[in-house]
């Protein structure tokens, strides 16, 4: 699994470097804006509990306890700091059912920095997000953990302003307790969203 992820990351990086060197015309100016609506499935990747040094990879009972597929939707607004880099915020809603039928929901609120090396009709945005998520579970418990994300994909603009895209990446959600009585409950969740998006740019 790790090997696969490494290979995919390398391929994406290579594609970005090649594309940016082949086609480096800029579309955006300082102050340009992007507004994106995103929806798609989100898959549990790993769940680590530190107290028993356990990492489950995938979904299912005895692994991460999640059903294989959840859902995610978000709204993003960004403004360009320079022709290649946009910064803004994203708010989303994600849900994942557990194997026992309970529901885990996340409301990620994050600052999002996007670098777009390839611009024009086709774009390859690379985004890093950092913020918080309001996480709750239907059988009791709520938490506001840090939330970090990496995302990339491809957008195709069928008009000057409107584009559709497909993206994926990884979320990192640490649930860390600083009270010594609860430190044994520290855990780290990673998830993989696979989304379709509609972007309006100006």
């Amino acid at each position: 699994m790790k090997q696969k992820l490494k290979s995919i990351s390398l391929l994406l990086l290579l594609a970005v470097v090649l594309c940016s060197s082949l086609y480096s015309a800029t579309y955006y100016d300082n102050g340009s804006q992007r507004f994106t609506i995103t929806a798609g499935p989100v898959l549990p990747l790993t769940l680590t509990t530190f107290s028993d040094d356990y990492t489950g990879v995938g979904s299912g009972e005895g692994v991460t306890g999640f059903e294989p597929v959840g859902g995610f939707g978000s709204l993003t607004y960004q403004m360009f700091l320079n022709p290649y880099v946009a910064i803004g915020g994203e708010i989303g809603y994600a849900f994942n059912y557990n194997v026992d039928g309970t529901l885990l929901t996340n409301v990620p609120m994050q600052f999002k920095l996007t670098y777009i090396p390839l611009q024009g009709r086709f774009e390859i945005p690379i985004s890093l997000g950092l913020g918080f998520s309001y996480m709750s579970v239907s059988d009791g418990g709520a938490y506001l953990p840090f939330f970090a994300s990496f995302e990339t994909g491809i957008d195709w603009y069928f008009t000057d302003n409107w584009g559709v895209g497909v993206k994926s990446g990884i979320w990192v959600i640490p649930e860390l307790y600083f009270q010594s009585s609860k430190s044994s409950q520290n855990a780290l969740l990673t998830m993989v969203p696979i989304t379709l998006s509609v972007t309006y740019r100006s």
């Binding site: 509990t49 306890g65 996480m135 938490y143 649930e175």
Partner: peptide, 22 residues
Amino acid sequence: SLSSCNLDNEGILWRNIDRTVS
């Protein structure tokens, strides 16, 4: 994130490992 919201809580993710199919 570091204080009030987390006081009255049992590990949400930590519990997930033990969840079983109904």
